[in-house]
Design a binder for these strands. Structure first.
Length: 464
RNA sequence: GCCGGGGUGCCCGAGCGGUCUAAGGGGCCGGCCUUGAGAGCCGGUGGGGAUUACCCCGCGCGGGUUCAAAUCCCGCCCCCGGCGCCA
């Protein structure tokens, strides 16, 4: 019987120094490890003390049942006295236990050896490029800074005209979005989208679903709200504050991604190893406060409070999770190659990983109007960080060992972001937008949807 | 939302204040037996702590009453049935 099967707790007890190193790699104060270690030791000591007292009390209680008369009265007194002491020690234990729990839950995942070390996203390392980016003549230098600087020779197409940024293009040229009105009625980072853009949104989602279902991923429409207990299991405290909306007066939180609901799908379950891996593709709206974003990307629909996303989520055996991570990112890559959007894959630096992830890849698409690669997809192996919190265990066929499964998540397509990428990459000098060919079959189901181009606004074409 | 019934271990299912620490069955794992399989027999099959042949906790969740709670009381969650409401 394995005593401790959560990798973090095992590490904390067996080699706290090593765990400290992992935390340091994230540029987080490693004293949280010391604190967790001390509280764990303290807790175990206090627990032993309580258990010994409980044992004594149980023995006396059992004796009481067999006795009568004076003997019984004497034993009763003894039991009551012991209870007083027990209550006191139990209270101490309860306090320590809560502190220990908090300390354990504050620990981030370990950092995989292949993760680049650095405090922030400037240490992220591009590992491969795909496609032929359209680079406006004025952005050539900064393009090279994002490619050649890392030793990659990326073929690109120089364009003389500067594409219009997705936000202005959407609202002024196409006139298919209205963030001002949305701002008035709901607040900034909300939007109204119209007509062709709505069809595009739906086509993108169908495209991603279709692709992944064909690969054997099970299609899921999950809950859009979850209880505190579940949210606590899938995100860390920082994400709770910056990303999550709460429903007033109820124990419910709006999901920030289907990842949350999909992780919860097997919460508190034991999964036999022969059932793994379990691969899911979820589709849902995502609600995010974007509290930490400041005034970043305030215009347009790049960074918003709600959007649609198709998400990949896998429950896996520990020995196969790293291979599956490669599968998930390559699925996302195939989707973006289908869309003909030039991208790079970035290995996220240790300081930029979220607490749940041991390793993370982002897929960043080249945005011709910004001259930047921007994040479209995020793919993480969270190993047993989420499964420990949600108590999702693995049952091996041989032997009685209990372990926690590994969980992984990756974007397939996030609708609004992908739309911004399409608007910038397929924008033509005449103001039309070429629609990626791969979406055509999903647009054909709507008679009124555009098939090849989205056209700019013309006064005369608008009917009441 | 209201009224009624119910939630017991991997599954079925008894127990409804104390004959110790959930009976009995099924499944699964390990062992014995066997040429092999089956049957049969034995042991194991929730979480945790430790001075590692010991102990604590666990009967939907959280409190309470009691020396003692699966069992009694209160709150919450979920499931089934009925009524109401509703896209």
């Amino acid at each position: 019987m394995v005593k401790v099967s959560w990798s973090i707790l095992k590490l904390l007890r067996e080699s706290p120094e090593l765990l400290r190193e992992h935390v340091k790699k994230r540029f987080i104060d490693p004293s949280i490890v010391d604190r967790a270690y001390e509280l764990d030791v303290k807790w175990r000591r206090k627990l032993t003390e309580v258990q010994e007292l409980r044992h004594k009390h149980n023995v006396i209680s059992r004796e009481v049942a067999k006795l009568t008369g004076v003997e019984r009265e004497v034993k009763l007194e003894e039991a009551k006295k012991l209870l007083e002491e027990l209550n006191k020690v139990e209270e101490e234990l309860k306090f320590i236990e809560e502190e220990r729990e908090k300390a354990l839950l504050s620990l981030p995942n370990i950092v995989h050896e292949s993760v680049p070390i650095g405090p922030d996203d400037s240490y992220n390392v591009p590992i491969r490029f795909w496609g032929k980016p359209k680079v406006w003549i004025g952005f050539i230098e900064q393009f090279k800074n994002q490619t050649e600087k890392y030793g990659f020779k990326v073929d690109y197409e120089v364009i003389e005209w500067k594409p219009i940024g997705h936000a202005d293009f959407l609202e002024s040229v196409l006139r298919l979005g209205n963030t001002l009105k949305a701002g008035e009625v709901a607040g900034s980072r909300f939007y109204y989208l119209f007509d062709d853009i709505v069809f595009l949104d739906m086509a993108l989602l169908m495209y991603a679903i279709d692709y992944l279902v064909k690969k054997g991923y099970r299609l899921v429409l999950p809950p859009y709200m979850l209880r505190y207990k579940i949210m606590m299991g899938v995100i860390d405290f920082a994400a709770f504050q910056d990303a999550i909306y709460k429903i007033e007066g109820e124990d419910l939180y709006l999901i920030a991604t289907a990842e949350h609901s999909l992780a919860a799908l097997h919460a508190f379950e034991d999964i036999p190893e022969e059932d793994l891996p379990l691969k899911y593709v979820g589709i849902s709206p995502c609600f995010r406060k974007e509290a930490g974003a400041g005034s970043k990307d305030l215009k347009g629909i790049f960074r918003v409070h709600q959007f649609h996303k198709v998400e990949q989520y896998v429950f896996a055996k520990p020995e196969e999770s790293w291979d599956i991570m490669e599968e998930l990112i390559s699925n996302a890559e195939e989707l973006f190659r289908g869309l003909e959007l030039p991208y790079r894959i970035v290995n996220i630096a240790s300081g930029d990983l979220g607490a749940p992830a041991a390793k993370k890849y982002d897929l960043e698409v080249w945005m011709p109007a910004q001259g930047l690669f921007r994040e479209m997809v995020s793919c993480s192996n969270t190993t047993d960080w989420q499964s420990y919190r949600l108590k999702i265990r693995l049952i091996r066929k041989r032997g009685m060992v209990r372990e926690y499964v590994h969980t992984l998540n990756s974007t397939a397509i996030a609708s609004t972001r992908t739309i911004t990428a399409i608007l910038e990459n397929f924008q033509n000098p005449d103001g039309t937008v070429t629609i990626p060919r791969v979406l055509r079959k999903y647009l054909e189901v709507f008679d009124k949807a555009p098939k090849d181009f989205i056209h700019p606004y013309k006064k005369e074409t608008i009917k009441s």
